[in-house]
Amino acid sequence: MSDASTQSGIYGIAAEYADDASLLEAARQARAEGYTAMEAYSPIPVHGLYEVMGGKRTILPLITLTGGILGLLAGYWLQIWVSAIEYPINVGGRPYITWGAFFPIGFACTILGAGVSTFVAMFAMNNFPEPYHPIFNTPNFEEATKDRYFLCIEATDPKFDRNAVREFLSGTQAAAVSEVDL
């Protein structure tokens, strides 16, 4: 944990909301106030929330593309190496490298490379598996997978000040505001 959070001794301050509109509005206000280290939690994806909080578009599609291209190259390389270099079979003088007949396996390898890299990258970016996280200490947080929405301003924020944050979050349409232990 960084210095700021160890100083305050908490992970952050979380507010609970009854619906997605209040959460979205609160996130927008927090952004306007100048807070940067925050995270919102919701039972369903809330569209626009990530962008409001200043999140950058994920590079996941690029990883998928790279994985797909590597899969394609690996699939073709495997077939070319086996059929032309390691174990060439001369069938009536036909060519060893037959890219057309290699396509089905090349394609399967493309999809496999793209899919597996997407899966691994998403897990790695989200730091999964991560069974423990301080946000789970938030009172009532198990409702975040049911029907409650949370916004947590984290102690690592340069502008973080317990009282100011608490006051600010109480000013939004929060149903409850509470400190989140580390």
């Binding site: 919701s42 994806p45 809330v46």
Partner: peptide, 17 residues
């Protein structure tokens, strides 16, 4: 559940994936 928290970042990456 590998520590899924339903955070906006999770959801963003999840939906793209």
């Amino acid at each position: 559940a590998v520590g899924w928290r339903g955070s906006a970042t999770h959801w963003h990456r999840y939906e793209v994936a």
